[in-house]
Simulated assay, not measured.
Amino acid sequence: MGEYVNISGREFPIKIIVYVILILLVIIAIFTSFFTVDAKEESVITRLGRYNRTVGAGFHWKLPLGIEKNYNVPTQEIQNMTFGFRTEKAGIVTVYSDRDYSSESIMLTGDLNIVDVEWIIQYRINDPRAWLFNVEDRTKTIRDISQSVINQLVGDRAILDVISTDRPEIEIQAQELMNDIFTQYNLGIRITTVKLQNVGPPSGEVKDAFEDVNKAEQDMNRLINEGKEAYNKEIPKAEGEAQRIIQEAEGYKAERINRAKGEANRFLSVLTEYRKAPDITRARLYYETLEKILANRDTLDIIDSNLENFLPLKEVGKNIGGTR
């Protein structure tokens, strides 16, 4: 009776039960002694809960029955985290979550404006042992540090710089600062990319006011450009007109000077002749003056103040011409 065991109303020999148990233990030992590691992974092996070793890709052996355990870590895979939004389905047409994550993305700028900054970080695990054992809540730690760094960098800048010119600089500095902090925490990861996505004023009255300011600035720039265009158009025209007037004045000046010089030279020549023969010169000047006065004066009548009628000079001239 001692060599049998009653199981569910049936008796089984103890030897058979022992053999079955041994066989099961061997099978379990075989299945728990081997494991595989993917090409993109590294595996951390613990012995009785304590770190023992790290192995790479391939087929490996370990102590069975839970004495050693393996933890495969995707060290060659680039992982993402998003802030201010979530992606529900990636693909040709990306589907984003409708939930509000503004608590992550709303922050204060250096000029005391509110801005909504959405960003993505990409990282790779470079130390699987540190990744598994050094930090309890790895995801929360990464998110908290990333938010702290972006808030710091945005808080050092004006809102217009954050939205436009300083975006590449913020991405570079954020990557460097995050890596420095993660190294201090010995988290076992390396940030490969920080990419700002949608950056702008938050929705609502702030966004509407900001858009009004941008529109006003665009109108101002447009008016300035139109003014410069009109300036560039009118100034050359005015300068050309001024040059024309100056040239005409110079021509008139030269003409007046030359005419004055000619008159002066003529006067000097007359003066010279007058000094040589005053009477003759005086008479010549008198006749020349009369000639200028009487030139082209066919209807001119000369009246002698001592006579009561006109002198018949015209008739005399005609008669003389007729006699010839």
Rank of each mutant, 00 (worst) to 15 (best):
Y4Q: 06
V5F: 10
N6Q: 10
I17V: 11
L24F: 11
I28Y: 08
I28E: 07
A39E: 15
S43E: 03
V44M: 04
R47P: 01
R53D: 07
V55N: 01
L63Q: 06
L65C: 02
I78T: 14
M81K: 12
T82Y: 15
R86E: 14
I92D: 09
V93A: 12
V93Q: 14
I106L: 14
I106E: 02
L112C: 00
N113M: 12
D116P: 03
V117Q: 05
P128I: 06
V135N: 08
R138M: 13
D144Y: 04
S146E: 07
S148I: 00
S148K: 12
D156C: 03
A158H: 02
L160N: 04
S164P: 00
S164K: 04
E171R: 06
Q173R: 15
Q175K: 15
E176M: 10
M178V: 05
F182C: 08
I189G: 03
I189E: 04
R190V: 07
I191N: 04
P201G: 08
E211C: 00
V213C: 00
R222N: 12
N225W: 08
E226W: 04
E229Y: 14
A230M: 15
K233H: 13
K233F: 14
I235L: 15
K237T: 13
I246S: 14
I246W: 12
G251V: 05
Y252D: 11
A264S: 13
F267A: 13
F267P: 00
L268H: 10
L271W: 10
P278A: 11
T289H: 09
E291Y: 05
I293C: 01
A295Q: 13
R297T: 06
P312T: 03
G317L: 10
N319S: 05
N319Q: 07
G322H: 07
